[in-house]
Protein backbone atom coordinates (compact mmCIF):
# COMPACT_ATOMS: atom_id res chain seq x y z
CA UNK A 1 0.00 0.00 0.00
CA UNK A 2 2.98 2.34 0.40
CA UNK A 3 4.02 4.77 -2.28
CA UNK A 4 0.46 5.46 -3.37
CA UNK A 5 1.27 9.13 -3.88
CA UNK A 6 4.38 10.72 -5.34
CA UNK A 7 5.97 14.13 -5.32
CA UNK A 8 7.61 15.40 -8.45
CA UNK A 9 10.35 16.64 -6.16
CA UNK A 10 12.58 13.80 -5.10
CA UNK A 11 14.75 13.12 -2.11
CA UNK A 12 17.81 14.59 -3.79
CA UNK A 13 16.05 17.87 -4.52
CA UNK A 14 15.30 18.35 -0.87
CA UNK A 15 17.98 16.72 1.16
CA UNK A 16 21.33 18.43 1.06
CA UNK A 17 24.03 15.88 0.46
CA UNK A 18 25.41 16.34 3.93
CA UNK A 19 22.08 15.43 5.50
CA UNK A 20 21.32 11.77 5.10
CA UNK A 21 18.95 9.19 6.37
CA UNK A 22 19.98 8.27 9.87
CA UNK A 23 19.37 4.98 11.59
CA UNK A 24 15.71 5.22 12.51
CA UNK A 25 14.71 6.67 9.16
CA UNK A 26 16.95 4.24 7.32
CA UNK A 27 15.34 1.12 8.75
CA UNK A 28 12.05 1.96 7.09
CA UNK A 29 13.73 3.66 4.19
CA UNK A 30 15.59 0.56 3.15
CA UNK A 31 12.38 -1.43 3.23
CA UNK A 32 10.84 1.27 1.08
CA UNK A 33 13.33 0.80 -1.70
CA UNK A 34 12.59 -2.89 -1.68
CA UNK A 35 8.85 -2.42 -1.85
CA UNK A 36 8.75 0.49 -4.25
CA UNK A 37 8.69 -1.79 -7.24
CA UNK A 38 5.56 -3.52 -6.00
CA UNK A 39 3.58 -0.37 -5.34
CA UNK A 40 0.70 0.56 -7.59
CA UNK A 41 0.58 3.65 -9.77
CA UNK A 42 1.28 6.86 -7.92
CA UNK A 43 -1.52 9.39 -7.49
CA UNK A 44 -1.69 12.96 -8.75
CA UNK A 45 1.59 14.76 -9.02
CA UNK A 46 2.44 17.68 -6.84
CA UNK A 47 3.84 20.70 -8.61
CA UNK A 48 7.27 21.74 -7.49
CA UNK A 49 7.04 23.19 -4.00
CA UNK A 50 9.93 24.87 -2.29
CA UNK A 51 10.22 23.37 1.19
CA UNK A 52 10.79 25.64 4.16
CA UNK A 53 14.14 25.66 5.85
CA UNK A 54 14.83 23.25 8.67
CA UNK A 55 15.14 26.16 11.10
CA UNK A 56 11.71 27.54 10.22
CA UNK A 57 10.06 24.15 10.50
CA UNK A 58 11.65 23.36 13.85
CA UNK A 59 11.42 26.73 15.64
CA UNK A 60 7.93 27.92 14.76
CA UNK A 61 5.52 25.43 16.25
CA UNK A 62 2.19 25.11 17.96
CA UNK A 63 2.54 22.36 20.56
CA UNK A 64 0.71 23.63 23.62
CA UNK A 65 2.06 20.77 25.73
CA UNK A 66 5.29 22.78 25.76
CA UNK A 67 3.82 26.28 26.04
CA UNK A 68 1.58 28.50 23.95
CA UNK A 69 4.30 30.64 22.31
CA UNK A 70 5.50 29.65 18.86
CA UNK A 71 9.08 29.37 20.12
CA UNK A 72 8.17 27.56 23.37
CA UNK A 73 8.19 24.03 21.90
CA UNK A 74 11.69 24.43 20.43
CA UNK A 75 12.86 25.65 23.84
CA UNK A 76 11.07 23.14 26.06
CA UNK A 77 10.54 19.95 24.11
CA UNK A 78 14.01 18.57 24.87
CA UNK A 79 12.53 17.41 28.19
CA UNK A 80 10.48 14.78 26.37
CA UNK A 81 11.87 11.24 26.35
CA UNK A 82 10.79 9.31 23.26
CA UNK A 83 12.71 6.13 23.89
CA UNK A 84 11.16 3.71 24.75
CA UNK A 85 7.96 4.51 22.88
CA UNK A 86 4.99 2.43 21.97
CA UNK A 87 1.63 2.99 20.37
CA UNK A 88 -1.42 1.28 21.75
CA UNK A 89 -3.82 0.28 19.00
CA UNK A 90 -7.19 -0.80 20.30
CA UNK A 91 -10.93 -0.68 19.75
CA UNK A 92 -12.38 -2.35 16.68
CA UNK A 93 -9.25 -4.09 15.45
CA UNK A 94 -8.34 -7.75 15.06
CA UNK A 95 -4.93 -7.47 16.72
CA UNK A 96 -5.13 -4.94 19.54
CA UNK A 97 -2.02 -4.28 21.59
CA UNK A 98 1.01 -2.17 22.37
CA UNK A 99 3.22 -1.77 19.34
CA UNK A 100 6.82 -0.79 20.09
CA UNK A 101 8.02 2.06 17.91
CA UNK A 102 10.97 0.00 16.62
CA UNK A 103 8.67 -2.85 15.61
CA UNK A 104 6.39 -0.46 13.75
CA UNK A 105 9.32 1.09 11.93
CA UNK A 106 10.67 -2.32 10.98
CA UNK A 107 7.42 -3.16 9.25
CA UNK A 108 6.55 0.16 7.64
CA UNK A 109 7.75 1.71 4.41
CA UNK A 110 9.13 5.18 5.04
CA UNK A 111 8.81 7.59 2.12
CA UNK A 112 9.36 11.27 1.65
CA UNK A 113 6.25 13.39 1.25
CA UNK A 114 6.58 17.08 0.53
CA UNK A 115 3.32 18.61 1.73
CA UNK A 116 1.88 22.04 2.22
CA UNK A 117 1.11 22.58 5.90
CA UNK A 118 -1.64 25.12 6.60
CA UNK A 119 -2.24 26.27 10.18
CA UNK A 120 -5.74 27.39 11.16
CA UNK A 121 -4.06 30.67 12.20
CA UNK A 122 -3.52 31.54 8.52
CA UNK A 123 0.18 30.78 8.18
CA UNK A 124 1.69 27.94 6.22
CA UNK A 125 4.87 26.06 5.41
CA UNK A 126 6.02 23.39 3.03
CA UNK A 127 7.47 20.43 4.90
CA UNK A 128 9.47 17.51 3.50
CA UNK A 129 8.19 14.80 5.81
CA UNK A 130 9.45 11.26 6.09
CA UNK A 131 6.81 8.82 7.15
CA UNK A 132 4.60 5.91 6.29
CA UNK A 133 1.00 5.67 5.26
CA UNK A 134 -1.35 5.42 8.21
CA UNK A 135 -3.34 2.86 6.24
CA UNK A 136 -0.41 0.46 6.46
CA UNK A 137 -0.30 0.74 10.25
CA UNK A 138 -4.05 0.32 10.56
CA UNK A 139 -3.94 -2.73 8.31
CA UNK A 140 -1.25 -4.17 10.53
CA UNK A 141 -3.73 -4.03 13.39
CA UNK A 142 -6.56 -5.29 11.19
CA UNK A 143 -9.49 -2.87 11.00
CA UNK A 144 -12.83 -4.55 11.71
CA UNK A 145 -15.72 -3.99 9.34
CA UNK A 146 -17.86 -2.00 11.76
CA UNK A 147 -15.20 0.64 12.41
CA UNK A 148 -16.03 4.11 11.05
CA UNK A 149 -13.65 6.47 12.81
CA UNK A 150 -10.11 6.58 14.14
CA UNK A 151 -9.30 8.32 17.41
CA UNK A 152 -5.79 9.49 18.31
CA UNK A 153 -4.23 10.47 21.59
CA UNK A 154 -1.03 12.37 22.44
CA UNK A 155 1.23 11.34 25.30
CA UNK A 156 0.15 12.69 28.70
CA UNK A 157 3.23 13.25 30.84
CA UNK A 158 3.08 16.59 32.69
CA UNK A 159 6.54 16.05 34.20
CA UNK A 160 8.06 16.36 30.75
CA UNK A 161 5.31 18.35 29.06
CA UNK A 162 4.88 21.22 31.49
CA UNK A 163 2.14 22.86 29.45
CA UNK A 164 -0.13 20.02 30.54
CA UNK A 165 -0.08 21.49 34.04
CA UNK A 166 -2.23 24.36 32.77
CA UNK A 167 -5.82 24.01 31.61
CA UNK A 168 -5.28 25.72 28.23
CA UNK A 169 -6.88 22.64 26.68
CA UNK A 170 -8.20 19.41 28.13
CA UNK A 171 -5.32 16.94 28.36
CA UNK A 172 -4.34 14.64 26.82
CA UNK A 173 -4.73 16.14 23.36
CA UNK A 174 -7.06 14.03 21.25
CA UNK A 175 -7.92 14.05 17.57
CA UNK A 176 -9.93 12.00 15.14
CA UNK A 177 -10.54 11.16 11.51
CA UNK A 178 -13.23 9.38 9.59
CA UNK A 179 -11.94 5.96 8.54
CA UNK A 180 -11.86 6.86 4.84
CA UNK A 181 -9.80 9.95 5.66
CA UNK A 182 -7.44 7.86 7.74
CA UNK A 183 -7.02 5.28 4.98
CA UNK A 184 -6.43 7.92 2.29
CA UNK A 185 -3.03 7.66 0.56
CA UNK A 186 -2.16 11.24 1.54
CA UNK A 187 -2.56 10.53 5.26
CA UNK A 188 0.74 9.59 6.84
CA UNK A 189 2.38 9.09 10.18
CA UNK A 190 5.51 11.24 9.99
CA UNK A 191 8.67 10.09 11.71
CA UNK A 192 11.19 12.41 10.10
CA UNK A 193 11.80 15.76 8.42
CA UNK A 194 14.53 16.28 5.82
CA UNK A 195 15.58 12.70 6.39
CA UNK A 196 16.37 13.25 10.04
CA UNK A 197 14.42 11.97 13.03
CA UNK A 198 11.50 14.25 13.65
CA UNK A 199 12.46 16.70 16.42
CA UNK A 200 10.50 16.59 19.67
CA UNK A 201 8.89 19.97 19.00
CA UNK A 202 7.43 18.63 15.76
CA UNK A 203 5.86 15.62 17.46
CA UNK A 204 8.49 12.95 18.00
CA UNK A 205 8.71 10.09 17.54
CA UNK A 206 5.66 9.85 15.32
CA UNK A 207 2.79 12.18 14.47
CA UNK A 208 -0.13 12.27 12.13
CA UNK A 209 0.01 14.42 8.97
CA UNK A 210 -3.24 15.11 7.11
CA UNK A 211 -2.19 17.74 4.58
CA UNK A 212 -5.65 18.90 3.47
CA UNK A 213 -6.75 19.75 7.01
CA UNK A 214 -5.73 22.55 9.35
CA UNK A 215 -2.56 21.75 11.21
CA UNK A 216 -4.12 21.05 14.60
CA UNK A 217 -5.73 17.91 13.16
CA UNK A 218 -2.25 16.46 12.64
CA UNK A 219 -1.81 15.30 16.22
CA UNK A 220 1.72 14.93 17.57
CA UNK A 221 3.60 12.36 19.68
CA UNK A 222 0.87 9.75 19.29
CA UNK A 223 0.59 7.00 21.92
CA UNK A 224 -2.83 5.60 21.17
CA UNK A 225 -4.94 4.88 18.12
CA UNK A 226 -8.47 3.61 18.64
CA UNK A 227 -10.82 2.33 15.97
CA UNK A 228 -14.44 3.13 16.78
CA UNK A 229 -17.90 3.45 15.26
CA UNK A 230 -18.57 6.84 16.92
CA UNK A 231 -17.22 10.24 15.93
CA UNK A 232 -14.50 10.74 18.55
CA UNK A 233 -14.12 13.95 20.58
CA UNK A 234 -11.33 16.28 19.42
CA UNK A 235 -9.44 18.74 21.62
CA UNK A 236 -10.03 22.04 19.85
CA UNK A 237 -13.63 21.15 19.20
CA UNK A 238 -14.09 20.56 22.93
CA UNK A 239 -12.39 23.88 23.69
CA UNK A 240 -14.43 25.87 21.16
CA UNK A 241 -16.88 24.01 18.96
CA UNK A 242 -18.00 27.11 17.12
CA UNK A 243 -14.49 27.80 15.85
CA UNK A 244 -13.08 24.31 15.34
CA UNK A 245 -15.14 21.56 13.75
CA UNK A 246 -14.44 17.85 13.54
CA UNK A 247 -13.53 18.03 9.85
CA UNK A 248 -11.48 21.26 9.80
CA UNK A 249 -10.66 20.91 6.12
CA UNK A 250 -8.68 23.80 4.73
CA UNK A 251 -11.31 25.94 3.00
CA UNK A 252 -10.69 29.50 1.79
CA UNK A 253 -14.43 30.08 1.51
CA UNK A 254 -15.29 29.43 5.14
CA UNK A 255 -13.75 31.98 7.49
CA UNK A 256 -12.72 31.31 11.03
CA UNK A 257 -15.06 33.42 13.20
CA UNK A 258 -12.13 35.63 14.17
CA UNK A 259 -10.18 35.87 10.94
CA UNK A 260 -10.33 35.26 7.22
CA UNK A 261 -9.14 31.95 5.79
CA UNK A 262 -9.01 33.23 2.22
CA UNK A 263 -5.29 33.87 2.29
CA UNK A 264 -2.24 32.80 4.23
CA UNK A 265 1.32 33.84 4.88
CA UNK A 266 4.04 31.39 3.93
CA UNK A 267 6.57 31.34 6.74
CA UNK A 268 10.10 32.33 5.77
CA UNK A 269 9.32 35.45 3.73
CA UNK A 270 10.65 37.89 6.29
CA UNK A 271 9.17 41.18 7.42
CA UNK A 272 7.67 42.09 4.05
CA UNK A 273 6.22 38.72 3.03
CA UNK A 274 3.15 38.96 0.81
CA UNK A 275 0.05 36.94 1.49
CA UNK A 276 -0.80 34.13 -0.87
CA UNK A 277 -4.25 32.75 -1.66
CA UNK A 278 -5.30 29.68 0.33
CA UNK A 279 -6.20 26.71 -1.86
CA UNK A 280 -9.29 24.55 -1.44
CA UNK A 281 -8.33 21.49 0.61
CA UNK A 282 -4.91 23.11 0.81
CA UNK A 283 -4.23 22.27 -2.83
CA UNK A 284 -5.25 18.60 -2.55
CA UNK A 285 -8.74 19.08 -3.94
CA UNK A 286 -8.23 16.64 -6.77
CA UNK A 287 -7.19 13.92 -4.35
CA UNK A 288 -9.70 14.38 -1.53
CA UNK A 289 -12.77 16.32 -2.69
CA UNK A 290 -14.60 13.08 -3.43
CA UNK A 291 -14.47 12.18 0.27
CA UNK A 292 -16.88 15.01 0.99
CA UNK A 293 -19.26 14.71 -1.94
CA UNK A 294 -22.74 15.81 -1.00
CA UNK A 295 -21.64 17.37 2.28
CA UNK A 296 -22.28 21.04 2.99
CA UNK A 297 -18.78 22.21 3.88
CA UNK A 298 -20.16 25.36 5.51
CA UNK A 299 -22.01 23.19 7.95
CA UNK A 300 -19.47 20.43 8.43
CA UNK A 301 -16.59 22.71 9.34
Amino acid sequence: MANRWKNTLTETDVTPETVYLNRRQLMGGAAGIGLAGLAGPAMAQEDALEPNEWDDITTYNNFYEFGTGKDDPARNAHALTTDPWSVKIDGMVDNPGEFAFEDIMARMTVEERIYRFRCVEAWSMVVPWNGFELADLLNLAGVQSGAKYVAFETLYRPDEMWGQKYPVLEWPYVEGLRLDEAMHPLTIMATGIYGRDIPNQNGAPLRLVVPWKYGFKSIKSVVRITLTDQEPPTSWNIANGREYGFYSNVNPEVDHPRWSQASERRIGGGLFARKIPTLMFNGYEEEVASLYEGMDLRKFI
Binding site: D55, D56, T59, Y60, K70, D71, W123, R265, I267, G268, G270, L271, A273
Partner: peptide, 15 residues
Amino acid sequence: LGLTGGLGAEPIKAL
Protein backbone atom coordinates in the same frame (compact mmCIF):
# COMPACT_ATOMS: atom_id res chain seq x y z
CA LEU B 1 15.37 42.40 15.03
CA GLY B 2 12.58 41.90 12.53
CA LEU B 3 14.80 42.89 9.63
CA THR B 4 17.69 40.69 10.70
CA GLY B 5 15.85 37.49 11.58
CA GLY B 6 15.89 38.15 15.33
CA LEU B 7 12.11 37.82 15.63
CA GLY B 8 11.97 34.23 14.46
CA ALA B 9 10.38 32.59 11.46
CA GLU B 10 7.34 34.89 11.36
CA PRO B 11 8.60 38.41 12.05
CA ILE B 12 5.40 40.22 11.06
CA LYS B 13 3.24 38.68 13.79
CA ALA B 14 6.13 38.90 16.22
CA LEU B 15 6.60 42.64 15.57
